[in-house]
Structures are given as structure tokens and as C-alpha cells.
Amino acid sequence: MFDPWFVAVAVTAVLIVGLSKSGLLGSLGVVGVPLLTLIMPAREAAGIMLPVLLAMDAIAIYAYRKQVNWHILKIMLPGAAVGMLFGWAIWAFVSDAVVLLMVGVITLLFVLDAILPIRKKLEGLPPSTPWGRFWGAFAGFTSFVSHTGGPPFQIYVLPQRLPPALYAGTSAYFFAMVNTAKLIPYFFLGQLSLHNLQLSAALAPVGMLGVLVGVFLVRRISAKHFYRIAYWLVFALALKLIWDSLNVLLN
């Protein structure tokens, strides 16, 4: 049956994720799965989102195919692989609320740290390999459990002050590789059922449209305004994640 509430929430969630995939909304795409949990179980939401994310990744990679920082990817991807394996191993034991709380707290600390003078002195320095491996692992873990790898990725990459398009391209390649790697474990965990894939196919065009619109806007936004928007969005997102997760854990 046609459910207007279901359609409205699902389309909104996927559209936000699509805009985020383009690099326009920073890590706001992390709200995709939490929004979908308003209309379905969290595990089912994660399974439905994965094929949609892969469709959006394809558009983002094509749009930014010549704009990627391979050095950052070489640092972060090995850590991401470890984080995904850990997420697979504890899939049955960790709750989404706990993961979202961790992401929210770490992201809030990141935003507060970004406004301190010491952070301004460190921006632009060559990326540290151990630091990148750590945040790559965190991004891989949270991405596997609930597709919320955006904030950990940004904690390492945003201070590099890459041009907006280069940042967006690096993010697109990173998450395309991470999401592709999640296909096999998601299949064995039963997340890619026929029902989930049917919903994914219906929502994928919405997400792809969001990516295209975001790409158009990213190329027309100055770096100064881009990072101002990104930090404010990450701050608001951190507060939302903390609030939502505590509501679940304390009730």
C-alpha cells in the first residue's frame, strides 16, 4: 500500500545523503540511516541504503574522477579495512544507538577543537599516517554498522583544507571503496534480501539526482564558504546524534 509518510521520510533521507555524497553537505549524509529508522528497523535501513549508496558513489566518482588525493586514501583505507572487519565481527552485539553516540561525541569534540588556536596552526600540515589509520578504522567501523563514516573521515581530512572539489572527490573514492567492500559481509548477514533490493532500486534515482544537484552547487561555492557551512553542519549533526542516541539508551 502507498504510505505518504514512508515515501516522504525515505525520499528525504536519500536526497540528503545524495547531496552529502557530492561534498555539499559535509557529513550530513550520516542522518540517512537514522531518518530511515523512523519507518523501519535500523538493520533493515542499513541494508536498503547500501545499494543506494553504491549508485550514488558511481555518480560522484565520475563527477570527480580527476580530483582525488591518493595519498590520503593510501593512509586511510588500510585502517578502514580493519574497522569493517571489526564491525562484521561484533555485528550482533553492538547497538546502533551506542555507535551513533560515539560518533556524535567524537564529532562534537572535533568541532570544538577546530575553533582553538592550536588547530589553526596545525591545518595544512602533511597528514600523519598513524592518525589517518586510526580515523580510517573508525570510519570503516561506523560505516559498516550504520553508514555513519562521514564524521571520522572529516576529522582527518577537513583540517587538510583541500579545495572543495578535491575534498569531495577524495571522499567519493574513499566511500565507494568502503561500500563496495561491505557487499560480501552484508550478503552473508542477510541484509541484501529481495525486499530490501526492491526498495533500494526505487530510491536509487532520488539519491543520484541529489548527487548531481550537489556537484553542480559544489563547483560554485568558494572554499571559505564551503568550510564554514561544513563545520556548522557537522556541529548541528553532532548535537542531533547525541540527543537521538541518548533518548534511545535512557528510555
Results as ranks from 00 to 15, higher is better:
D3T: 02
W5E: 11
A8L: 13
A8R: 07
V9P: 03
V11D: 04
A13E: 00
A13N: 07
A13L: 09
V17E: 09
V17S: 14
L28K: 15
G29F: 06
V33C: 03
L36S: 05
T37G: 09
A42S: 05
R43N: 06
A45E: 06
A46W: 03
G47I: 09
I48K: 08
M49N: 04
L50N: 00
L54N: 10
I59H: 12
I61Y: 06
Y62F: 15
K66A: 12
V68G: 04
I75S: 05
I75P: 03
M76T: 06
A80K: 03
A81K: 08
M84R: 08
L85S: 11
A89I: 12
A97T: 10
G104T: 07
G104P: 07
V105D: 01
T107N: 15
F110M: 07
L112I: 09
I115N: 11
P117G: 12
K120I: 08
K121C: 07
G124Y: 06
L125Y: 14
T129L: 13
G132I: 05
A137N: 00
A139H: 04
G140F: 07
H147P: 09
G149R: 00
G150R: 01
P151S: 06
F153T: 02
F153W: 05
I155M: 08
Y156E: 11
Y156R: 11
Q160T: 05
P163R: 12
L166Q: 04
A168C: 09
T170L: 05
S171N: 04
M177K: 11
N179G: 07
T180G: 15
K182L: 10
P185I: 05
Y186M: 01
Q191Y: 08
L194M: 10
L194A: 10
N196R: 09
A201Q: 02
V206C: 10
V211M: 03
G214S: 03
V218G: 02
R219M: 09
H225V: 14
F226M: 03
Y227G: 00
A230Y: 14
A236V: 13
L241R: 08
V248A: 11
L250I: 13
